[in-house]
Design a protein around this nucleic acid. Structure first.
Length: 139
DNA sequence: GCCAACGTTGGC
DNA sequence: GCCAACGTTGGC
């Protein structure tokens, strides 16, 4: 199983919205960056991803699971971009602030730290474990 | 509000 | 194909 991290502005799409949806399953739409698209395509059913809120209070707020692999993004007229369906499976007991991630030595190599603009990115198994611990979540 | 990093556009 | 100018994202 591979691990990932996806970002959203809570004003656009928040963890609470996703969590409160019936079945907690929603498509992840609106990705318009080639590198991010490649990462979406690489996701397999059963893979898990951190949900990160960008903006005013940047922090990791929960875990999503891929329930449907990449397919055409319903919000894209050109047919070039893709979406995956995520199920929200676990909220963070303690959201992990980006500032704390930056201060954690073993997480300094995260894409989140090095390339803050990439909205869909891979996470290593070690990083996954560390952040789950910080958030009070089961890995 | 500012700035860094990155992506895109368009002139040459 | 290169590069400057500009736009966008996202952290601080």
């Amino acid at each position: 199983m591979n691990h990932w991290l996806v970002k959203s502005e809570p004003d656009e799409w928040s963890w609470d919205e996703h969590w409160s949806k019936k079945g907690r399953v929603e498509p992840w739409t609106g990705v318009r960056n080639h590198q991010a698209k490649q990462n979406l395509i690489a996701m397999k059913k059963g893979d898990r991803a951190f949900f990160h809120h960008s903006g005013k209070t940047p922090q990791i707020v929960g875990i999503l699971e891929v329930v449907r692999a990449s397919h055409p993004d319903p919000t894209d007229d050109t047919g070039k971009w893709v979406s995956v369906d995520f199920k929200a499976i676990q909220p963070a007991k303690h959201p992990v602030a980006l500032a704390d991630i930056r201060q954690t030595k073993t997480l300094a190599g995260m894409v989140l730290v090095k390339n803050s603009r990439l909205s869909v990115q891979p996470v290593t198994a070690a990083q996954w474990k560390t952040i789950c611990k910080m958030a009070g979540m089961k890995p």
